[in-house]
């Protein structure tokens, strides 16, 4: 009993974090569309999601952007991780790679839009994708690096001693060992890109808004039942992806 009492602060934090999510979940099945009037169970709000062209278009754009930026960021980020762990001794380079992870998004968004405008880079899916790569590669590099740091390098040395070339050793030994880290990094990058709003809002131009930009224009006008359903779908998706990434290891080390 005393044990439970001492854990109150944690339960209160969980209540604070999860009550709003639970309320959205409940509302998404509420036929009345109002938070406090139960009008009966319905899944019709979910049905409406799939007939809303703005949402579907936004989802398509977001998927394209997320897949593209994840692929580029995973390749660049993994290379960076190897380089930082194996060859780099400069703390400046270290800081430069991690900078985008803590850099305020509003500043990145503003300066990127100014930059794209100056060089005449057409705003659209490609510009959002290119922007998302910046912070994604920092997260991928950080997770892969943890993995590289924690593995026993004598395996690599053994391969080299047995006459394998450096490239072959990397390909056959190092890469398979760090691959869970790479997958975890890629999943994290994918989630970050799907949820990113501020930079997308600045750099995505008028033709193809990403899903968060579509959501923004919906929620500005108050409570709409479809958004509740969409919220549940998106939260479910993020939770699944992050849960898998967490199992593969490394996500929590990012902040600690």
């Amino acid at each position: 009993m005393a044990e439970l009492w001492r854990r109150t602060p944690l339960w209160m934090a969980y209540a604070f974090l999860y009550i709003p999510i639970v309320v959205l979940f409940g509302m998404s099945f509420n036929a009345s569309g109002l938070p406090t009037v139960w009008g009966g169970f319905t899944t019709s709000w979910y049905g409406e999601l799939f007939s809303n062209d703005d949402i579907l278009g936004g989802a398509r754009t977001t998927l394209l952007v997320a897949v593209g930026s994840t692929i580029v960021a995973t390749i660049l980020g993994t290379l960076l991780a190897v380089g930082l762990e194996r060859y780099n001794r400069s703390r400046v380079v270290d800081a430069a790679v991690m900078a985008p992870a803590i850099f305020p998004d509003i500043v990145m968004a503003f300066s990127l839009l100014a930059f794209y405008t100056l060089i005449g880079f057409t705003l659209g899916r490609v510009s959002v994708m290119a922007s998302h790569v910046i912070f994604n590669l920092a997260f991928v590099a950080s997770i892969v690096r943890t993995r590289l740091h924690n593995f026993d390098r004598s395996v690599e040395e053994a391969a080299l001693d047995l006459g394998a070339s450096e490239l072959r050793t990397f390909w056959r030994i190092t890469l398979p060992i760090i691959s869970p880290g790479i997958v975890a990094g890629a999943l994290l990058a994918f989630t970050l890109s799907i949820d990113e709003f501020v930079i997308a809002f600045f750099t995505n131009g008028p033709a193809h808004p990403t899903l968060p930009v579509v959501i923004y224009s919906m929620v500005r006008f108050g409570v709409t039942p479809e958004v509740n359903a969409l919220a549940v779908v998106l939260i479910g998706l993020s939770f699944t992806v992050i849960f898998v990434a967490q199992r593969l290891g490394g996500v929590k080390e990012l902040f600690t």
Binding site: V23, S238, F239, I242
Partner: peptide, 16 residues
């Protein structure tokens, strides 16, 4: 977990 879900939606929850 909540941190990795869309922050617009988490903000929206408070309007609700």
């Amino acid at each position: 977990l909540p941190f990795w879900s869309n922050f617009l939606i988490r903000t929206y929850a408070w309007i609700v």
